[in-house]
Design a protein around this nucleic acid. Structure first.
Length: 110
DNA sequence: ATCTTGACAGACG
DNA sequence: TCGTCTGCCAAGA
C-alpha cells in the first residue's frame, strides 16, 4: 500500500519538520530519505509539494544556499522575502550564513 | 514502452 | 577559480 509517492512522502515529511528560520539542502534531505543519489528527485518532489501548504518548500535550497526554485514560486522574490521574514537573511537569492541557518534533517530524524 | 526534462551534486579539465 | 559533463532516478509526453 502507498507505494506510489512513497519517496515523495518521505521528502514532504522531512521538509515539514524544518523549523522556522532554518533552511536545508536537497542533498541532505535526499540522504535523510535514503536517496542520497536522488537529490534531483527531492526538487522534483518539491515541485509537487509547493502546492501543499504543509511543505515549506521555500525553506529548501540547493547546497550553495541558492534559491534555485524561486522561479517555481508564484512571484519571483516571494521566496526570498518569506525566508527573510522567518529570520533567514537572503541576499541576491542566496541564503547568507547558509551553514549557520542550515538545518540537518538527518540529525533531527536520527 | 521510449525519450526528454529537471527546485541537484559531485567530478573533471 | 570557473565552466562543463556525467550520474542519478522519477514523471510527463
Amino acid at each position: 500500500m502507498a507505494l506510489e509517492t512513497n519517496f515523495f512522502e518521505r521528502v514532504y515529511e522531512v521538509v515539514r519538520q524544518i523549523p522556522k528560520g532554518k533552511v536545508s539542502s536537497y542533498g541532505a534531505i535526499a540522504k535523510s530519505v535514503g536517496a542520497a543519489k536522488s537529490a534531483r528527485m527531492v526538487g522534483y518532489a518539491m515541485n509537487s509539494a509547493k502546492d501543499l501548504e504543509d511543505v515549506p518548500a521555500h525553506r529548501v535550497v540547493n547546497r550553495n544556499g541558492l534559491l534555485t526554485g524561486k522561479s517555481h514560486f508564484g512571484d519571483h522574490g516571494a521566496m526570498q522575502q518569506m525566508l527573510e521574514e522567518e529570520g533567514v537573511p537572503v541576499k541576491d537569492l542566496k541564503v547568507q550564513d547558509f551553514q549557520k541557518h542550515f538545518w540537518d534533517p538527518i540529525k533531527h530524524l536520527k
